[in-house]
């Protein structure tokens, strides 16, 4: 699923390889960002930087009461997310990662996804978190259905997500 990525030389990677903690959860229940942040701190108490991202259910159609239904392909999700984390680990000096993705029925404003990355340096933490999120969007087998009072429709994949992914493969500038 993942293309071969041009790995940058990463001297940190070898020395920290054995201590990397990767935590992946797919669940219907909500999560607590504070708890996840604490867990990342506990993975490596003396480390320099933690970057986290939380994705929320947004208003797809203005003024509509939007709900989402999310389904996924469990065995494949696990493989793909593990592979994404592996690629990020080879590319940047990261100590640990936490990924949570919710499935089932979600309401407007609810948390859907969490990415947390722990690294000695903020640049690596920011880049790895963005990389993981970009590849999760395009490669992980999740599907969203939008449910409004007017009806329901499966959400279409976006070209902008595919182009965000492509930047990492081309090593061109990633614009956010």
């Amino acid at each position: 699923m993942m293309d071969k990525i041009n790995s940058q030389h990463n001297p940190l990677h070898n020395s920290l390889h054995n201590t990397l903690h990767n935590h992946i959860r797919i669940q219907e229940n909500d999560f607590n960002v504070g708890d996840e942040h604490t867990a990342l701190q506990q993975d490596a108490p003396s480390i320099g930087a933690i970057v986290t991202f939380t994705g929320l259910v947004r208003e797809f159609t203005k003024g509509e009461d939007t709900q989402l239904f999310l389904e996924h392909y469990p065995a494949m999700t696990e493989k793909v997310l593990n592979n994404i984390v592996k690629q990020a680990t080879q590319r940047w000096g990261i100590i640990s990662t936490r990924i949570i993705h919710r499935i089932g029925h979600l309401s407007l404003g609810e948390q859907i996804v969490f990415i947390g990355v722990n690294s000695p340096h903020r640049a690596d933490a920011f880049a790895a978190a963005t990389f993981i999120m970009d590849f999760l969007k395009t490669d992980a087998p999740f599907w969203k259905k939008e449910i409004t009072p007017k009806g329901e429709a499966w959400v279409d994949a976006k070209d902008s997500d595919a182009s965000a992914r492509k930047h990492w493969l081309d090593n061109t500038e990633r614009t956010l």
Binding site: L70, H72, Y73, V113, A140, P141, W154, V155, A157
Partner: peptide, 24 residues
């Protein structure tokens, strides 16, 4: 694992079909 049209299919394989993904 994502497979292109020329990918072989053998006994006991699990083959899945789905639209482009929209998670996150």
């Amino acid at each position: 694992e994502i497979a292109q049209d020329n990918h072989p299919i053998q006994d006991n394989d699990e083959v899945a079909f789905f639209p482009p993904v929209t998670g996150g």
